[in-house]
Amino acid sequence: MHDTVCEILDALAASPDPAAAETAALIGTKSPTAVAVTLESLRRARELPTLEACFDQELRIMAHALAHPDFREGVRARMIDKDRTPHWAPATFEV
C-alpha cells in the first residue's frame, strides 16, 4: 500500500494501464489539500462502525472545507472567471 498522495500518484503514473495515468493526471489538477483530506477520510472511514458515522465524518469535513481558501479558489476558477486555472495553497502535493 502507498502511504502518501505522492506515492499513489507516482504509482498510477507508472502503471501500464492508460486509465491509471489519466487518473493521476486528473487528481493532479485538484486541490492538494482536498486530495490529502480525502485520502485520510477514506482511511478513517474503514474504522468507523456505521454508515451513519461515515456520513457524520463527511459532513464535518465539508463544513471545514467550505471555510478553506481552496474552496473559494476552485469556485472562482470554475464558475466565476471560468479560466479553470485555480491557484491552490499549497500548490503541490509535496510536503
Rank of each mutant, 00 (worst) to 15 (best):
A19M: 09
G74C: 12
P86R: 09
S41I: 07
V37P: 05
R76G: 00
P90K: 05
R78N: 08
L12M: 13
A34E: 08
E58I: 14
E22A: 15
A65K: 05
A25H: 10
A19C: 10
G74T: 09
L48C: 13
V75L: 11
V35P: 07
D3C: 05
T38Q: 11
R44I: 13
L59F: 06
A65Y: 00
A77Q: 04
P90T: 08
M62D: 12
A63Y: 01
A65G: 02
P90Y: 04
T33Y: 01
V35I: 14
A53N: 03
W88F: 04
A53D: 13
A65S: 08
E73M: 04
A20S: 14
A24D: 07
A89V: 05
D56C: 10
P32L: 09
M1W: 01
L26C: 09
T92F: 00
I80A: 07
G74E: 11
T4M: 02
G28P: 01
G74S: 13
A24N: 10
A11M: 06
S15T: 14
V95S: 09
L51A: 15
M1I: 10
I8G: 00
T38A: 15
R76V: 03
L26A: 15
Q57L: 15
L9F: 06
V37S: 03
L26N: 08
A21G: 15
A21S: 15
A67R: 13
A45Y: 08
I80T: 10
F71N: 05
R46I: 08
K82R: 15
V95P: 13
T29K: 08
R78E: 14
A25I: 01
I27Y: 00
C6M: 11
E40R: 15
H87S: 11
P32A: 10
G28T: 01
C54T: 12
A67W: 01
R46E: 12
L51E: 15
A63S: 13
R78Y: 05
D70T: 09
A45M: 14
R72Q: 11
L66W: 06
D10I: 02
A91K: 06
I61H: 02
A24H: 06
P49M: 07
H2C: 12
A14G: 14
L48V: 09
T38I: 06
E7N: 02
E22P: 03
G28M: 01
R72P: 00
D81V: 13
A24K: 03
A20T: 04
V35K: 07
E58L: 14
G74W: 05
E47P: 02
V5G: 03
M79Q: 04
F93Y: 10
Q57D: 15
F55Q: 11
T50G: 12
E52Y: 03
Q57V: 09
I80S: 02
V5P: 02
E94S: 12
P18W: 04
A24I: 06
A20P: 01
R44W: 08
E7W: 01
L26T: 14
T85Q: 08
I8R: 06
M79E: 02
L51N: 11
F71K: 00
F71D: 01
R60D: 14
E94V: 14
T85E: 02
W88C: 08
T50P: 11
F93K: 03
I27E: 03
A14W: 00
V37R: 14
D3P: 01
A11F: 04
E22C: 11
C54G: 10
H68T: 06
E52P: 00
T33H: 01
A25K: 09
L9G: 05
